[in-house]
Design a protein around this nucleic acid. Structure first.
Lengths: 240, 240
DNA sequence: AGGCTCGGATGATCCGGATCATCTGATCCA
DNA sequence: TGGATCAGATGATCCGGATCATCCGAGCCT
């Protein structure tokens, strides 16, 4: 990926992987790099979206606040991923806010330029559709999980997911890769902070995770998976 | 919309509204109509997706079953809307099932043909992206709601949404437009059937809805909205 | 040093909603 | 016509997790 140089991590956003060298150069000419420190706000709920961001380096949390002050972290966005696509396309104000978890480098593309680029590179548009489709499915899953699962399952599943995305192997255990406070974990899982703390402790007691200060390690991945899937799948029944 | 004839309702899928007459004719040549009765299954979880459907007439529920038999209705799909796009694009098996709520007429497009069509009509791809982006936002909202709202708010919100999409004005009240059982409402709201029944009764007692057999009418839309928004929005606080 | 704040941890209490158990009235049909 | 079955309704009970209240230890700042 031609524009994926100096200071970027990973191998670039895959939705652009179908571009030839010329397409990549064209894209590169549209990108404007921006640097953020840790804990900086990239955009706020209510702001107008002028374009979209591509994460080069660092990690960003995308979250939402409900009217009654409750927060829900929608996802963590890492290198090679997009930020603000959803809002960019429906030409509206942001409905979520984005805040860096680490020092972060982004590329910005202006809305009009990007739409124009997509029209000239339909395969990229199709890739983007595929990406959104996947994301939609993952939200559908979360919806199902969050309605019917208990706090332990939710937390186990969350840890597994974060570990998958950001995890750093470290000996025979897996460091989660991001320093998330218990409160942040709770917001991601949709449970209270106290419950998150308690549940984490139970997981530690059962030898599934290790806690060292704020750092969390997955020790028994299979065990967590068993928890998350906790179900002996009864007879399917009919599909009404 | 040239192919939106005989037996279709509404004015056709808006993602194709940017097509000129030729494009519409081209699209029409790719469509294959299929008819379903009430309560027929269009596709099942686990089946391979060979293409996507466009709903002409009737209504379909898209739902998911969790491993432990719990069901969650993801959305109702009406005329002019798509069915199975998500799965078509990530080239996988369906992760949800679709079942007709009424006699239904669909158009089917084969996957390869549609992808090819999108490549030749990038604006349609962009429209589709916009559609998915909106849908994604609505799921994000549901996620936030479902984590933090009580059963009354959820149900109120659900009734409003269904009324918006399918509602048929009838005198000074709004018929929901689809006959959903209490159990189905419950699955859509992510609550138990009993709670749905009780909560509906409370809403009736408060004069917000009317119940006649299985038919549900919205009598006081504003009242429901007040319930759904139930929040005096405290001081926003910081955005951490 | 002392006095902060802040994240983590833990206990006590309370409440909403799931679950289980009936009961009713339609509809269906053998 | 009587016996299923099924949606709706309603009561009783139970439990998970939210909430509230401390408490602890680690920075941190003058």
């Amino acid at each position: 990926m031609i524009f994926w140089e100096e200071g970027c991590e990973g191998e670039g956003p895959w939705i652009f992987s179908s571009l030839n060298e010329e397409g990549q150069r064209e894209l590169a000419s549209l990108l404007r790099p921006i640097e953020y420190d840790k804990d900086e706000v990239i955009f706020q709920e209510g702001e107008l979206a002028f374009g979209l961001y591509i994460v080069c380096r660092g990690r960003v949390k995308l979250a939402k606040r409900s009217s009654k002050g409750k927060r829900q972290i929608l996802k963590l966005v890492g290198p090679g991923e997009l930020l603000g696509e959803k809002t960019m396309f429906d030409q509206e104000t942001y409905t979520a806010y984005a805040k860096t978890l680490e020092p972060t480098r982004l590329y910005f593309i202006e809305r009009g330029a990007f739409l124009d680029f997509l029209r000239r590179h339909p395969q990229v548009a199709i890739n983007l559709i595929e990406k959104l489709a996947r994301e939609l499915k993952s939200f559908q899953n979360r919806l199902l999980e969050i309605s019917y699962e208990g706090s332990t399952e939710r937390l186990a599943r969350l840890l597994l997911k974060v570990g998958e995305v950001c995890g750093v192997p470290e000996g025979d255990r897996l460091y989660l890769g991001v320093d998330l406070s218990r409160a942040e974990l709770a917001e991601m899982a949709g449970i209270s902070t106290e419950t998150a703390i308690r549940t984490l402790s139970r997981l530690r007691e059962r030898g599934l995770v290790e806690l060292e200060g704020h750092k969390i390690y997955i020790r028994d991945r299979a065990g967590l998976e068993r928890l998350a899937e906790s179900t002996l799948s009864t007879v399917p029944g009919d599909s009404s």
